[in-house]
Every structure is written in C-alpha cells, then in structure tokens.
Amino acid sequence: MATVKNTYILGIETSCDDTGLAIVSNGEIIAFEKSSQGIHQNTNGVVPQIAAQEHLREINSLFQSCLDGAGIETEEISAIGVTSGPGLIGSLAVGASWALGLSQNLNLPIYGINHLEGHVFTLFFSDEKPKKFPILVLLASGGHTMLLDWSYPEAFKRIFNTRDDSAGEALDKVATMLNLGFPGGPEIERHAEQARDELSYRFTVPMRNKTGFSFSGLKTEARKKIREHDELNLADFCASFQKAAFDHLLDQSEKQLSLKQYHGIAIVGGVSANQKLRKQFQSLAQDHSLCFFAPPLKLSTDNGAMPAIVAEKMLNGEIETSFLTGVYSRFKSKK
C-alpha cells in the first residue's frame, strides 16, 4: 500500500501588531509561535512604522522555533501561506517579502492569503468542525466587523460591513478614555466581570430598526457619559458599554437568521475571545436550533495558523488558488 506523504505548510501572519508563524500538517497545527507587540501600549494604539520594525526583528527567531516545535528541517516545508491583506502595508510587506525570499530559496509555492478568510478558516480547528453549510459568520475584531455568508468550498460572501468603527476598535477607544491601556477589549471584559449592574449606565443600542453595524455613535455616547460622571463606577460602566455593543452584534445577526436558512452560526476574530459574547452567541444558536462554532481562544486573535490552513486547502485543490502577487490594505472580495 502506498504511503501518503505528509505535507508541512508554513503560515506567516504580520497584518498588524502580532507576528504569528505556524506549521500545519494534514489539518492539524504541529507548531505555533506568536509575538504580540507590547510596545504599542505606550501609544494607546498601533504605530505602523514601529509595528513593521518589530515584525522584522521577531520573524527569524519565530521561524526557527516553529521548525524546532514541528521537528522538521527547512527543506521539508511543502508550501507557504502568507497574509497579503487587508492590513497595515508596512507590516504586510515584512511578512510577504520574507516569505517570498524563503519560497525562492526552496522553490516552493507561495499563496497570498486574505486575512479575513484566515479568520473564518480557524473554524476548521474548532471542537465541532463545520460540515454543513451555509453558516452565518460574525467576524469581529479590532479592524473589521462584518457578517459573512459562508458556503464552503465557495468563498464567503460579505453580507454587510460596519459603517464606521469596528467592534474591537470601539472597545479599544473606550478603554483608552478610561485609561485602561491597549488593547482595551480584554480590559473592558475584565472589569465588566466585576460589575454588579450592567444596566447602571443606559446606552442606546445602535440601528435597532436598520440593517448594518455602526459603533461611532455608541463610542460618542460613552465619551459623553464619562465626562458627565465625576465618580464613575468603572466595573458597571464597562459592563454597560459592553452589553450595548454585544446587543448590537446579536440584534443584527438575528435579523439575518430570519432572512435565510443556515446550518450554523459562528464567531471569529479577536472580539470572539470574549467569553460573554461566546455564551450569548451560543444561546442564539440554541434558540434557532443551529450548531454553534468558534475557534479555540488562542486562534481568535491574529496568528500564523490562519494563513497556513487556507494555504493547505489551496495546495490540496479544495478551494480556489490565490498565489502571492502583492499586499493590499483594504478588503478585497473574490470575483
């Protein structure tokens, strides 16, 4: 009987301020390395030039750690998947140029991976892997908030995007107003867990009678309340703001569920690491008799397994191939 040769797919993610590398083999993560840039805490936001410099400083050592973790040699790598966008151009260029150099040295195929598709494909690492489609996917992160219609192996279709700020950006900015540091989402969550009353501060849930996402008004309302209250109950305020933001995500997702028959609902992206949000979407799925999917917590935020799993499926001919041709800052849908 013929022996099936293992393939080893190197994934490289440098779209923002996380340098992530991983090696995937036959759908499993066999090496995973990541460096998050704490330097941006000093500026309460990502400085693009510094982010690119940090990627360049970290990528070689992370690659060697991946090889050691997987127990393979450089020459055993079968293909490379590198995030090509959307993201910060300088950061993306570091990962893409480094990956291109390696692919040329080893004569390997190199795939340019859509960052958003990478987030969606982390669902293949969830405890209950998606098998029936379509699935309604909420992608919520610091850079993006959108609803997606996913009918694998076809590319996902964007239903609608946020009109202004992303959910993660709104959480980060409100955390900055409260002097909680950056990134702010985990700090908002941590303080909200100590709250006694998540209705202490009344926020207006955006777009109750409309379709789409919008967080700029909610953010402005938060700024106004912070200025008006000299003695703010921090835990209750964080819980109240978080509740309004998550109610907005739930409302818009439930509206879409009423418009089309889905086999499941999923959440991906950095905001999906929030435990309260996971429980709320799990309840939403149960209410509609749907399967619920979410990636493992460590795969919610940017990481190298994202481009690696997409590249593996391209190499295997499961989905349309997209070779690296450059990097781009904004969302690009597949034709």
Results as ranks from 00 to 15, higher is better:
Phe121Gly: 00
Glu128His: 14
Gly95Asn: 02
Ser126Arg: 09
Leu123Gly: 00
Pro86Phe: 01
Val94His: 14
Ile135Gln: 02
Gly101Met: 12
Val82Leu: 06
Leu116Pro: 14
Asn107Glu: 15
Gly81Glu: 06
Asn114Val: 06
Asp127Ala: 15
Gly112Asp: 07
Pro130Leu: 03
Pro86Cys: 01
Ile110Ala: 00
Ser84Tyr: 04
Leu102Val: 14
Pro130Ser: 09
Pro109Ala: 05
Tyr111Asp: 01
Ser126Pro: 08
Asn105Lys: 11
Phe124Tyr: 15
Ile135Glu: 03
His119Thr: 01
Pro86Tyr: 01
Gln104Lys: 15
Leu100Ala: 05
Gly101Ser: 10
Gln104Leu: 13
Val82Gly: 03
Ala96Leu: 02
Leu123Asn: 03
Leu108Trp: 06
Trp98Arg: 09
Gln104Trp: 12
Ser78Gln: 05
Leu106Ala: 05
Ile113Asn: 09
Ala96Asp: 02
Phe124Gly: 01
Ala96Pro: 00
Glu128Met: 11
Gly101Glu: 07
Gln104His: 13
Ile89Cys: 12
Thr83Ser: 14
Gly87His: 08
Gly118Ile: 04
Ile89Met: 12
Lys131Tyr: 05
Phe133Glu: 01
His115Asn: 10
Asp127Val: 07
Lys131Gly: 04
Asp127Asn: 13
Ile110Arg: 03
Glu128Gly: 00
Ile80Asn: 09
Gly81Tyr: 13
Phe133Gly: 06
Ala99Pro: 10
Lys132Met: 07
Gly87Thr: 10
Asn107Asp: 15
Val82Arg: 03
Leu88Asn: 07
Lys129Phe: 07
Gly118Pro: 04
Trp98Asn: 11
Pro109Val: 09
Tyr111Gly: 05
Val94Thr: 10
Gly101Arg: 13
Thr122Val: 04
Ile89Pro: 08
Ser91His: 08
Pro134His: 04
Ser97Lys: 13
Gly112Thr: 01
Gly81Ala: 13
Thr122Gln: 08
Leu108Cys: 01
Gly90Tyr: 02
Leu116Tyr: 10
Leu88Gly: 02
Lys129Arg: 14
Gly85Asp: 02
Pro134Gly: 07
Gly87Asn: 09
Tyr111Lys: 03
Ser91Phe: 05
Thr122Asn: 12
Asn107Val: 07
Trp98Tyr: 15
Val82Asn: 04
Ile135Phe: 07
Ser78Tyr: 06
Ile135Gly: 00
Ile110Glu: 00
Val120Asp: 06
Val120Cys: 11
Ala96Lys: 04
Pro134Ala: 02
Val94Ile: 15
Gly85Val: 02
Gly81Pro: 09
Gly95Glu: 06
Leu100Met: 09
Pro86Met: 01
Ile113Ser: 06
His119Arg: 12
Val82Tyr: 09
Ala96Trp: 02
Phe133Gln: 08
Gly95Phe: 04
Asp127Pro: 01
Glu128Ile: 12
Ile80Glu: 02
Ile113Cys: 10
Ser97Ile: 14
Gly112Cys: 08
Gly118His: 11
Phe125Asp: 14
Ile113Arg: 13
Ile113Lys: 11
Ala79Thr: 11
Pro130Ile: 03
Leu100Tyr: 10
Lys132Ser: 02
Ser78Lys: 05
His115Cys: 12
Ser91Ala: 15
His115Gly: 13
Phe125Gln: 13
Gly101Asn: 11
Tyr111Cys: 04
His119Trp: 05
Leu100Gly: 11
Ser97Gln: 14
Glu128Asp: 13
Tyr111Met: 02
Phe125Trp: 03
Ile80Val: 10
Glu117His: 14
His119Asn: 09
His115Tyr: 13
Leu102Met: 13
